[in-house]
């Protein structure tokens, strides 16, 4: 009798543990997908910003010196190696170079953009704002993923599989420059 009760209790505990692990694995999976989609969105917005900056630099509105500085920073951003958004294939070492280039473009934009409004300028400013948004949403996803993956049970049970731990995108955007 007691053996049966104990057996039942053990079975229930095991079932609860299994449920908890599978629910947590599902959360991690969902967060990983969020990190990947927000990273892809950030990449798209950065590309959009660089091409808007390049177009503006060649539009003839700027003085030649500012235009050259801006064009240089924008091309560097467009040429920087893109790491794949997928958490499995990417390597964070590649990103450090990328974020340096993007910070440079933010600086170049802050230095080169004229005060007054203009047709092409609106596009650049809009692209800058979108980069800010995309970066914040991405970093938000990364912070929450890292929090959950830091939990002991997640590490012991290998719930995250072989996906690497994501890193925040650390570059200057217009908000902070």
């Amino acid at each position: 009798m007691t053996a049966l009760t104990w057996g039942l209790v053990a079975l229930l505990a095991l079932a609860a543990l299994a449920w908890y692990l599978s629910a947590t694995a599902q959360r991690i999976d969902r967060l990983h997908r969020r990190v990947e989609t927000s990273r892809a969105a950030l990449d798209a917005e950065l590309t959009r910003r660089a091409s808007a900056a390049l177009e503006f630099s060649t539009s003839g509105v700027l003085d030649p010196a500012s235009a050259l500085v801006l064009a240089d920073a924008a091309t560097a951003s467009l040429d920087a190696p893109r790491t794949p958004a997928a958490l499995r294939d990417a390597n964070d070492a590649d990103d450090a170079q990328r974020w340096r280039v993007e910070s440079d473009l933010t600086w170049a934009l802050a230095a080169a953009l004229p005060e007054q409004d203009g047709e092409g300028l609106a596009r650049v400013l809009d692209a800058e704002r979108r980069v800010e948004l995309a970066r914040r949403f991405h970093n938000d996803a990364v912070v929450q993923t890292r929090r959950l993956r830091g939990k002991r049970i997640v590490r012991w049970a290998h719930l995250a599989g072989r996906a690497r731990v994501p890193e925040t995108a650390d570059f200057l955007d217009a908000q902070e420059s």
């Binding site: 927000s38 892809a40 917005e45 979108r130 948004l133």
Partner: peptide, 12 residues
């Protein structure tokens, strides 16, 4: 317009 920009950023 800002709220719509947020929608567009996440909806791709």
């Amino acid at each position: 317009a800002e709220v719509l920009t947020v929608y567009e950023t996440v909806a791709g």
